[in-house]
Design a protein around this nucleic acid. Sequence first.
DNA 1: CTGAAAATTGCGAATCATTCGCAAAAAATA
DNA 2: TATTTTTTGCGAATGATTCGCAATTTTCAG
Lengths: 142, 142
Amino acid sequence: MTKARKGVKRLLDEAEKPLSALDVGTLMEGVCDLATVYRSLHYLEENGFAESFVLHCSAHGTERYYVSRKAPHRHWFHCERCHRFIDLGACRIGAILKSMESEAGVLIRHHALYATGLCEGCRGEDSVSELVEKERGEEGRE
Amino acid sequence: MTKARKGVKRLLDEAEKPLSALDVGTLMEGVCDLATVYRSLHYLEENGFAESFVLHCSAHGTERYYVSRKAPHRHWFHCERCHRFIDLGACRIGAILKSMESEAGVLIRHHALYATGLCEGCRGEDSVSELVEKERGEEGRE
DNA sequence: CTGAAAATTGCGAATCATTCGCAAAAAATA
DNA sequence: TATTTTTTGCGAATGATTCGCAATTTTCAG
Ligand SMILES: [Mn+2]
Ligand SMILES: [Mn+2]
Ligand SMILES: [Zn+2]
Ligand SMILES: [Zn+2]
């Protein structure tokens, strides 16, 4: 494995959050080119060292993220306000997927599950009104 | 609702598979511009008439699909070989998401779940070897 | 250690889907 | 029907990702 690939792999292995290609690119600044980062991510994914998922965030559009496959497969929550990821823990839908698989007669090789909404901290913000346009009626703090 | 929006909405309501913006654009050919299709899809999604998810298909890259919200929320399987969608039925992960939500202390407003792999028809193809590079040992048909 | 052959990189130029700007057209209001 | 508010069409940006290709590394046999 080359220096660039090793470097990208290490970043993913050590990250405790999914990283975008650009996140990795920034962290690899000076070490290798962004095109190489993309190629390394592909290499790592094709060879089972990493996996990715794409989510659509209303504020930032389509975002693709990578995570190491060193640790067991897990799922993530993405906050629509602060754009941070929150760990939702290990995958709990194995059984459900198995039954869907047999019922639909397909062979599942990958799956993606993620949730979006508001994280604990962002739920209380006064700016929540924009998003949750409800919960109005109590006395706002303004 | 304008003609373009009505048209796009009808397409989604009547489709029995998720449609990409380009799919819709092609079907709306002559009726309205592609930019309007994008704007209509946004309108429909913002107003609760449709929802979308993004998936990454190894052969076609990142693809965003839209489905009507007329019918109850369901999940889909995407075949990596023939690129067709297979209905995996109504959402069965409500309870799991609820517990993840309370455990992580977040407020889930949306979620996406989809699986990819090989559909029933594509599992038997001789070309499977490319993808499943296993199951070798039996006598291939060639 | 070499030296060639194979694989990977850097960089700038393409792509591709999606978004924007803005004047014209259509829809909503009064 | 006149006026105001939205939506469209179209062509020009964008932004992320991919490509082409020559220069640089790696790999590997000798
Ligand atoms: Mn985001
Ligand atoms: Mn596909
Ligand atoms: Zn947050
Ligand atoms: Zn198939």
